[in-house]
Nucleic acid binder design. Structure first.
Lengths: 250, 250
DNA sequence: GGTTCCCATTGATACGGATCAAGCGCCAAC
DNA sequence: GTTGGCGCTTGATCCGTATCAATGGGAACC
């Protein structure tokens, strides 16, 4: 609807439509959190454009020079790194309101690739200008530090998962995490569509796709979830959570 | 030598001794990187004190409120998180010039515990004041963003290791990483002392202590390293690196 | 100097998940 | 409507690491 470029609308309204954090439903999840409306306007002027990314397309890939961060406005992304010998590791799945590209600050070039798993839209945030603006808006600066820190905490959680948990615990943790994030965004926490393949889930969780498939089947047999291809329904959330608590019985 | 508090020296010289980034051998690794000498002095005034932590003591633990970050001035730390059901995951080992506590920014309280693995010394950096100062010193702000981002990149590397690599690959990667970090600090990259136990290495690498021990022995049998308790000598670095490159032969 | 405790090594065995393999269902292209 | 390909499921087997167990050695404490 509020596409960029192709339709020749007059500039003013285009600018208006382009980016408006203040009217964005994600402002409570995203960078603008807690900013005054005046500060939010300053942030808006900085965001040069929204970009649409079709399912399967790359927003950027490892090695690309970094000039902007991206806030997911709509859709779903997969982030992955590749080792020198070609092994891929999915490092995360990002949805609306989450920031992409923070890994790239350290070296001015991206270390991950970002691939859209469904038709998506991102707000492009030029990094140098964000740095500058954050010097004038303390709460923006603070928010951004928090976002970076939260990513570190999340990564530690994944390490815990990869280092200590068994296959079914990992998958349970993954489903619970997705469920909570959907809920935060106003979607159902019980019914959702998996945008990624079993293989991508496996890569994220340090498992093979067959193991993911088997664990899904087992959860279904136990009556915890119903799965049909990419559709998931969580029918017994407490049971899923119990798996995580290292419940003694299998 | 430059202890804090106990010895009643006159204030001026104490202040001088307390913290002097400008004369600190770590200034090229730590936050002050690239700051002018004038800016460095501003940073120094902010760092309230140096603290000594004895081997085995905790600098902070998960749940503690966070008011400061810490720069390791001397020594060696282990960072770990604990899951609700009590499983411990070591998330990293930090040495001189590295920053501790960045995970705590997101929630104003620590999510990790930091334990000294040898007698250590840290510079305490009050976070609110660092935020303030970084608004006035762009290169300080930029450095700090980079430090946070670098931590995210490091974490992604650990995910790759935990998600994709076999036991011996993980240990090889660990040894190479330690070796490089010692070299950066002017220590030998070939001979060093492991400050952590086999169990702590195992927790970091997602393996059990027996597996660490066996892999050490195997590397030694193959002539890649010499190990004696905590002492390690790397005798064939290229061979260790070859293990990482997924070399076909075992 | 001896005792104790913790850490490390090594062996035997068990088990979880990887790997190999076959078959199915769905969607897109023709 | 048919064909091909990709993603998913399920079974059989294998392999790597965990687990269990016994022993050894070094450092700290008495």
């Amino acid at each position: 609807m509020t596409t960029t470029g192709t339709i020749p609308i007059q500039e003013v309204s285009l600018k208006n439509l382009r980016v408006a954090c203040s009217s964005c439903s994600l402002r409570e999840l995203c960078l603008p959190l807690g900013l005054s409306s005046e500060e939010m306007i300053q942030l808006e002027t900085l965001i040069s454009q929204r970009t649409r990314i079709k399912k399967g397309e790359q927003l950027y890939s490892a090695g690309d020079p970094m000039s902007s961060l991206y806030a997911v406005r709509l859709g779903f992304f997969k982030m992955s790194v590749v080792s020198e010998d070609g092994r891929e590791q999915v490092t995360g799945f990002q949805m609306a309101g989450e920031l992409l590209g923070m890994d790239a600050i350290s070296s001015d070039s991206h270390t991950c690739s970002a691939i859209a798993l469904e038709d998506s839209e991102v707000c492009e945030i030029p990094f140098t200008e964000l740095e500058q603006l954050s010097r004038n808006i303390p709460s923006l600066q603070h928010n951004f530090y928090k976002v970076l820190s939260r990513e570190i905490v999340r990564d530690h959680g994944v390490m815990m998962l990869l280092g200590n948990m068994k296959a079914e615990e990992r998958l349970a943790a993954f489903l619970i995490n997705l469920s909570q994030r959907f809920a935060l965004r106003g979607y159902s926490s019980k019914n959702f569509i998996l945008r990624m393949t079993r293989e991508e889930i496996g890569s994220y969780l340090g498992l093979k796709l067959e193991t993911i498939s088997r664990s899904f089947s087992k959860f279904q047999d136990q009556g915890f979830i119903r799965v049909s291809n990419k559709e998931v329904e969580i029918t017994d959330l407490p049971a899923l959570k119990a798996i995580l608590s290292g419940c003694p019985e299998k």
